[in-house]
């Protein structure tokens, strides 16, 4: 019943970013016109530049693990709208905590993600990251991309982006149809629910995981 699609782990999400090189196929600029705000760079270009950064900064094998994680966090700061992501993964529970607690949670979340994904960049080897076209659905721009592996079918990755302060920021990533934001939200809200709707149970668990 398990299907290989479930096999695409969250980890690949970031591994791909390590692999960007080569030309992008057919970036559709027309769709960016739909965005209400005039933005300088198209969504697809933002993804390309993020991939370049990740490639340059994270794949160095001599990096210490904690340094790589720090660089990973600062890349997230730059390209993700963490304010929105943090609230999204908390689901309706974001209301039950203060602004300071959300900020604390945001830092924990970033470190938790770095812990899970930053090391994937170490194993970067011959894969290619190709940015494709972008489509507009409702308020969001979806940038299609592919992680092309030498030893298997390519993995489809879709970046969900929205304009904040005149530039595109990432709010979700889907790998082969599996949304990281939604998966994380479903898991986190379940943890909170299991603990009598107490958000601090989740933050405690994240602290334990990240050692912060």
């Amino acid at each position: 019943m398990a299907n290989s699609k479930i096999a695409i782990s969250a980890a690949t999400m970031i591994a791909i970013a390590a692999a960007w090189s080569g030309p992008s196929s057919a970036t559709s600029l027309s769709s960016s016109v739909v965005a209400e705000v005039a933005v300088e760079t198209s969504a697809a270009e933002v993804i390309k530049s993020m991939a370049d950064h990740a490639m340059n900064e994270l794949t160095d094998q001599s990096l210490a693990d904690d340094v790589r994680r720090k660089k990973f966090v600062s890349l997230m700061d730059r390209y993700f709208e963490m304010d929105v992501v943090s609230r999204f993964v908390l689901g309706r529970y974001w209301r039950s905590i203060s602004k300071e607690e959300i900020e604390e949670f945001s830092v924990l979340l970033q470190n938790y993600l770095a812990l899970n994904y930053a090391n994937q960049f170490k194993e970067f080897n011959g894969e290619q990251f190709v940015v494709g076209d972008q489509t507009q659905k409702n308020k969001d721009t979806f940038v299609n991309s592919q992680f092309v592996r030498p030893d298997g079918p390519p993995i489809n990755i879709v970046w969900r982006m929205r304009v904040f302060d005149d530039s595109y920021k990432i709010i979700d990533v889907s790998i082969e149809g599996l949304s990281m934001g939604i998966t994380q939200r479903d898991e986190f809200t379940s943890v909170i629910q299991q603990n009598n709707d107490d958000v601090s149970a989740l933050t405690a668990a994240l602290k334990a995981k990240t050692g912060l």
Binding site: I6, N116, L178, T183, D186, E187
Partner: peptide, 16 residues
């Protein structure tokens, strides 16, 4: 990596 493996699987099953 997960905090609630059961809930993560449940979500991934639905999305898949």
């Amino acid at each position: 990596s997960s905090i609630d493996y059961y809930a993560a699987l449940r979500s991934l099953y639905r999305q898949q």
